[in-house]
Write a protein that binds this DNA or RNA. Structure first.
Length: 187
DNA sequence: AGTTCGATCGCCT
DNA sequence: GGCGATCGAACTG
């Protein structure tokens, strides 16, 4: 399983979000297939953390593509993004759900539940299942502790919808998911 | 230094 | 389907 090249990420964030479906994320002994993503854009997107420019938190988003942007939300959860667009531009992709592949017993222990559909069917759940924390912010996902690899699955039927859980720029069709997957966070 | 608010989750009814 | 937990980032003064 070869990691995706940096050139994969150095493109339009919408394209990257779509094409990440079916790819595999690994961390430690755990991995999962991406079944749900959301794109966050540099322009015309008030929901993006980067909407108000570079801050200590958002600096990674403006940095080189193919790195992890991990942020803390609601006093509890870490969420994983992959930085897209060339360095200096601010697109990124939120990973919202995974179909668990390897290390499922460890994921069950970390999550404290059994049901496989619920191990990684949400942005806060999948970081807990894979053991990804704020310390992984800025990691190079083409060669670091977190790796994103080519898939060997067949064609994917892609669904599109508005993004989940936001109030600003809420109607843009920037959520992508594997149609019919049992592992997505919502229909 | 104080305030507001959030790209969520899980428990409760 | 509704809501409280929980805390850091960003903004205000």
């Amino acid at each position: 399983m070869t990691p995706l090249a940096r050139s994969f990420y150095s493109r339009d964030a919408v394209k990257v979000a779509r094409e990440l479906l079916g790819k595999v994320i690994r961390h430690g002994g755990t991995s999962g297939r991406i079944v749900e993503t959301e794109a966050y854009l540099e322009t015309g997107d008030l929901a993006a953390h980067s909407a108000h420019g570079v801050t200590p938190r958002t600096r990674v988003i403006f940095g080189p593509p193919g790195h992890a942007y991990v942020y803390f939300i609601y006093g509890k959860h870490a969420c994983l993004n992959l930085v897209a667009e060339p360095e200096g531009s601010a697109g990124c992709v939120l990973i919202r759900a995974l179909a668990p592949l390897e290390g499922i017993p460890q994921m069950r222990r970390r999550r404290g539940i059994e049901r496989i559909e619920n191990l990684a069917n949400g942005p806060g759940k999948l970081t807990e299942a894979l053991g990804i924390t704020l310390r992984d912010n800025g990691v190079d996902v083409t060669r670091g502790r977190i790796l994103v690899c080519e898939d060997d699955f067949g064609n994917i039927e892609t669904g599109v919808s508005a993004r989940i859980g936001i109030t600003k720029s809420a109607d843009l069709p920037l959520r992508f998911f594997v149609k019919g997957s049992r592992f997505i966070s919502r229909k």
